[in-house]
Design a binder for these strands. Structure first.
Length: 575
RNA sequence: GCCCCCGUAGCUCAGUGGACAGAGCGACGGCCUUCUAAGCCGUGGGUCGCAGGUUCGAAUCCUGCCGGGGGCGCCA
């Protein structure tokens, strides 16, 4: 028996596709209306095959048009081949079985067979009432039930070189990494957020030399840092009495000051790290030597041309990589091997490194290095972030205002605000470039998708204010209400949409895809606005109708706030 | 040359096996004595890069090709 319930099957997502371990009728909570439907479909399908079922799990979808029902399943089409019957005939029998399974007319208005063999379910108002009750029962904490296989996840992101302010690209890393950690936590994982500080090595030396040159009026080093902030740093260090000749001190102070800036910017952006991990400390604690020793003992290193190499080709890389240069200096990879070994030693079962597009070639060798250390390379993931382009109307804005001076995240926040900035960095998949249109992002109108969603939330808040304290009581007994009038199509559509939220969060977490939450929250807002158009809430006619609709408003408000919260975007009470 | 990502509406993009392919922007036309018009409704707009293959069914999976971007350092 290979089937699993959708609840368990999808909970772990991409890396562990179903079939998973649990039998398919486990994990279904009686109060989850979607899980009940799935379970019923599975049971009905199994009944047609005398309990012997293998193969793909039947779907439970929303049909493209309302005339095709509230939910549909492809189960009959999947069963047609093994049963040796026509899909349509199987669908008819399945429909009858399903009707029994769901207790006759209690939940189901009718079942139809359509198209190539879809079984379409038309659900009753009582079913929708119960669905609302189950949502209300979740209280403030909407979203998925925690995964039954939680992981300890370390998400390393931003990790920008501490040699200058964060630019918009770093902002996208920050928004993505932060939203990802929120999603993973919502899915039930234990998450740490970490910023790796590259405070050792060549670029810091060059940075120090650049500051020193500004301080002493000396020669700028080749590939030095030109930005105006370098001059400011030089001034501050001068005021502190730092000797420009003490390059080690200049570097350390410069890095410290830059990191304070970076931290302040991230703070303002709503991104907070649990840990700032210093590369310099890694060396100081001897971890680099220890990691290299471990690789050496495992027989994965060799000397050639005066350098120490790691045999990454044994683990899928396309060429071997240098760990210690001929001159005796360790490479960046050497430190990173030690760093990732440290992560594993700290007990993390999953390591997610959010990398920039320009580092994507780095992932295979890091994966190889992890394997060489004797760890499971599949524990390592590296989502690749594509670039952010700043666009203004039709014009491509200059990425650099002054040579070497990128548009900073602070400037962007000053311009469009934190909510819009986060939204526009998250609403596209991380592996597609973003054109951030300042003109659109600044606009305070429905054209601007972030305000579109926030406005729905504020509108609901306004309705609830108008309704007063009745709104509070409405949520408590939403499902028990049986108004004299039947539910409007837009009410049903909205309820269905809210029911999707847990699956959306699970999927978004499993696929490392916060942009799905943007798309979802937009559709919730759209469904709400349609409901608002069709259905008077306060003062609605009919026994219990007002309270029922107030309850729906409250549930929608919680869902939108929950979705925006996962994105780190505020849900305003008024706009 | 090898590796990775991408190619869907005029633009920017959702959509990793299901029913006539979606959203936002842009264009055009309607709707405010009524719970927020930061809203709603309607119109126009697509050979899902191309060609094969797998499948009852493909934008989605496989192969090849074309086009765009990125990466292939004893830089980080």
């Amino acid at each position: 028996m290979e089937w699993t319930s959708a609840i368990t099957a999808t909970s772990m997502g991409a890396s562990v596709p179903w079939p998973s371990l649990a039998p398919y009728d486990d994990g279904v909570t009686a109060t989850d209306p979607i899980a009940e439907l799935r379970s019923a479909v599975n049971q009905a399908a199994r009944a047609l095959r005398d309990g012997e079922l293998t193969g793909p799990e039947p779907s439970l979808d929303c049909p493209p048009k309302p005339e095709l029902g509230d939910y549909s399943s492809n189960a009959a089409m999947l069963l047609a081949a093994p049963l040796g019957e026509k899909p349509h005939d199987v669908a008819v029998r399945l429909g009858a079985e399903l009707e029994r399974e769901l207790g006759g007319g209690e939940s189901i208005d009718r079942i139809e067979v359509a198209g190539p063999g879809f079984v379409n379910l038309f659900l009753s108002d009582p079913w929708y009432r119960r669905a609302m009750a189950s949502l209300a029962g979740a209280g403030e904490r909407l979203g998925p039930t925690p995964t039954d296989s939680p992981e300890r996840v370390l998400v390393e992101f931003v990790s920008a070189n501490p040699t200058g302010p964060l630019h918009v690209g770093g902002g996208r890393h920050a928004a993505y990494g932060d939203a990802l950690t929120r999603l993973l936590e919502a899915a039930g994982h234990e998450v740490q957020r970490e910023f790796y500080v590259n405070d050792a090595g060549g670029q810091v030396e060059r940075f120090a030399a650049s500051i020193a040159a500004r301080m002493s009026g000396g020669e700028m080093p080749e590939d030095g840092y030109e930005g105006a902030y370098v001059a400011e740093l030089a001034e501050r260090l001068g005021a502190e009495g730092v000797d420009p000749a003490d390059s080690d001190l200049v570097g350390r102070r410069g890095v410290k000051l830059v990191l304070e800036e970076v931290r302040a910017t991230l703070d303002r952006f709503g991104v907070h790290f649990d840990n700032w991990f210093s590369e310099r400390d890694l060396y100081a604690r001897g971890e680099v030597d220890a990691a290299l020793g471990r690789l050496d003992r495992a027989g994965h290193t060799y000397k050639s041309e005066g350098a120490l190499w790691l045999r990454t080709t044994e683990f899928g890389d396309d060429k071997d990589r240098v760990l210690i240069r001929a001159g005796g200096k360790p490479t960046y990879l050497a430190a990173d091997v030690a760093y990732h070994w440290d992560k594993l030693e700290r007990g993390f079962g999953r390591l997610i490194d959010v990398l920039g597009a320009d580092h994507h070639g780095y992932a295979p060798r890091l994966r190889a290095a992890i394997a060489a250390l004797g760890a499971d390379p599949d524990a390592f993931e590296a989502p690749i972030m594509r670039l952010v382009h700043i666009v203004e109307g039709d014009e491509r804005a200059q990425m650099s205002k002054r040579s070497g001076d990128f548009v900073s995240l602070d400037e962007l926040i000053d311009d469009i605000g934190v909510d819009a900035a986060r939204w526009f960095m998250l609403w596209r998949s991380h592996d597609t470039p973003v054109d951030l249109d300042l003109e659109l992002a600044r606009r305070e109108s429905s054209d601007n998708p972030v305000y579109y969603v926030q406005y729905a939330h504020a509108r609901i808040a306004s309705i609830l204010r108008k309704a007063g304290e009745g709104a509070e009581r409405a949520s408590a007994d939403a499902g028990a209400l049986t108004p004299g009038t039947s539910l409007q199509p837009t009410e049903k559509a909205l309820i269905k949409r809210l029911l999707e939220f847990p699956d959306e969060v699970r999927e978004a977490a499993a696929r490392r895809a916060p942009h799905r939450v943007c798309a979802y929250s937009t559709t919730v807002a759209a469904d709400f606005h349609a409901f608002y158009r069709d259905c008077q809430v306060v003062g609605a006619e009919g026994e219990g109708v007002e309270r029922s609709r107030l309850a729906l408003c409250l549930l929608t408000k919680r869902t939108i706030a929950g979705a925006l919260g996962l994105l780190g975007i505020s849900a305003p009470e008024r706009m």
